[in-house]
Design a protein around this nucleic acid. Structure first.
Length: 442
RNA sequence: CGGGGUAUAGCGCAGUCUGGUAGCGCGUCUGCUUUGGGAGCAGAAGGCCGCAGGUUCGAAUCCUGCUACCCCGACCA
């Protein structure tokens, strides 16, 4: 993409409403635009990041055996009356009425709808286990939306729903999602720590929140220091291996970790002082095993091997990609701007033409741009007629992980500069070497 | 939902107390000079001063009502 033809409204000054760093940087980098309290447009640069996050979430859901579908944002109130949540959900649910005076709502979550889908088609235990998910907009009419897309009213959520014949099978489904989440967050460059959580209005008895540590986190969290050194399972792990899944779960839940609501002060203080981590955390995922709460209420039953009908065991599993975009920035930024992990960077690399209009520099940039593009890289080429300082600032602000800086001084000696945004390390290389080095990474 | 605040050009702000028809910085446009960490000079465009009503010869400014947004707290993917 040539920057001169792209739509990237970056700002030098920070709009005053932005309090936390991710919100400020998302606005300044031209990723989002506020349309109303807690409601945002995702501008082109932000959308690229969001799409990359979604792709990783999707890959890991699929790897764990979940199957994607797409449910609507607008739902009928009738389904919610069946489960009893139409009354129970409260003012967070945005209720609307259509032209025929029918009660509708903007979905805050989809347990009812997925249960309706399940019971319409699945009759036999032989069709289990089943895990269906979608990535869809949700609306929760928060009393006080804040922190940009971190706590917005409209937000994107990946929500998966598992259906199993019995509690043991449901437990395995839970462990699979647990493992998939660890892998997902690791691929997004985040260190997420599972913490036992309250189940709230979703219901059930087993639940974990995945929390990343960040000073701007909304809740206080407490955990064992060893979590910071733990590595997520690699892609060779077998999701159908019950013992392996249980092993991952046990490993990641064996140490103390709790949010403020679930905090056990005595247990925490029993740890050696050096092992205690007391910090702020951002919730980026939440999983629930709630048994037959919805299947009972909505009669989602299957015939078991013995011919008798049983209510299916269910679980639900949520990740907020829009919140994740902000959380990744909270975890990766410096004074100059965002520092994206390669996996979610809006572009794989940037080329800064320090003297647009200079024949040699233009030609060198064009060649680099073409060659990297042919190698399958997504490159942002800053071909604008701007001063070098403005280009450096823009590249750093939007956080491109790898930048090739091309100017007359270097070219005179046959080199360009390759800069690593994260480490700040720069090296002078021939254009060939720079292309090879960048493409070798993929 | 309680408490506090703000609303003036794309962004950040001054002007409001003390009424006289709107200004600064950044950004944008034109031209020239510049070009390795957000350039300089010259010129230009851009504003129902949140909305509605009132007071007044005259309202960004005073009065009344409304709306939107932000912050602190309680609640939440």
């Amino acid at each position: 993409m040539r920057l001169s033809r792209y739509f990237l409204p970056i700002m030098r000054e920070t709009p005053k409403e932005a309090e936390i760093v991710s919100h400020r940087l998302m606005l300044r980098a031209g990723m989002i635009r506020q349309e109303a309290a807690g409601i945002y447009t995702w501008l082109p640069l932000g959308l690229r990041v969001l799409n990359k996050i979604n792709a990783i979430v999707r890959e890991e859901q699929n790897r764990a055996g979940a199957i994607e579908l797409l449910m609507p944002v607008i739902q009928s109130a009738d389904l919610w009356r069946e489960s009893g949540r139409y009354e129970a959900y409260g003012k967070e649910m945005l209720r609307i009425r259509d032209r025929h005076e029918r009660d509708m709502l903007f979905g805050p979550t989809n347990e009812e709808m997925i249960t309706g889908i399940f019971r319409a088609y699945v009759r036999s235990y032989k069709d289990l286990p089943l895990n269906l998910y979608h990535i869809q907009w949700k609306f929760r009419d928060e009393v006080r939306p804040r922190f940009g897309v971190m706590r917005s009213r409209e937000f994107l959520m990946k929500d998966a729903y598992s259906f199993d014949i019995d509690a043991a099978a449901a437990r395995h489904s839970y462990n699979k999602m647990f493992t998939a989440y660890l892998r997902t967050f690791a691929r997004l460059g985040l260190k997420a720590i599972p913490m036992r959580a309250d189940t709230g209005p979703i219901g059930g008895d087993l639940s974990h929140e995945f929390i990343i540590l960040a000073s701007t986190g909304e809740s206080a969290v407490f955990c064992h220091r060893d979590f910071t050194g733990m590595a997520a399972p690699d892609e060779a792990i077998d999701f159908d291996d019950r013992a392996a899944m249980r092993g991952v779960f046990d490993q990641w839940t064996g140490l103390y970790a709790a949010t403020e609501e679930m905090h056990d002060k005595a247990a925490f203080e029993a740890l050696p002082e050096a092992d205690r981590v007391s910090a702020r955390g951002i919730e980026v995922g939440h999983i629930f095993n709630f048994g037959t709460k919805y299947s009972d209420a909505m009669k989602a039953v299957v015939n078991g091997p013995d011919g008798k009908e049983v209510a299916v065991q269910m679980g639900s599993y949520g990740i907020g990609p829009t919140r994740l975009a902000a959380a990744i920035i909270e975890a990766g930024h410096d004074e100059a701007g965002i520092v994206w992990p390669d996996s979610v960077a809006p572009f794989d690399a940037g080329i800064a033409n320090l003297k647009a209009g200079d024949k040699a520099v233009d030609a060198a940039c064009e060649e680099l741009y073409t060659r990297l593009g042919n190698a399958g890289m997504d490159v942002l080429y800053d071909d604008r007629d701007e001063r070098p300082g403005a280009k450096f600032a823009a590249m750093d602000l939007i956080g491109l992980p790898h930048q090739i800086i091309v100017g007359p001084k270097g070219l005179a000696g046959g080199t360009v500069e390759l800069k690593n945004r994260r480490t700040g390390q720069r090296e002078n290389l021939t254009p060939d070497a720079a292309v090879n080095k960048l493409t070798a990474r993929a």
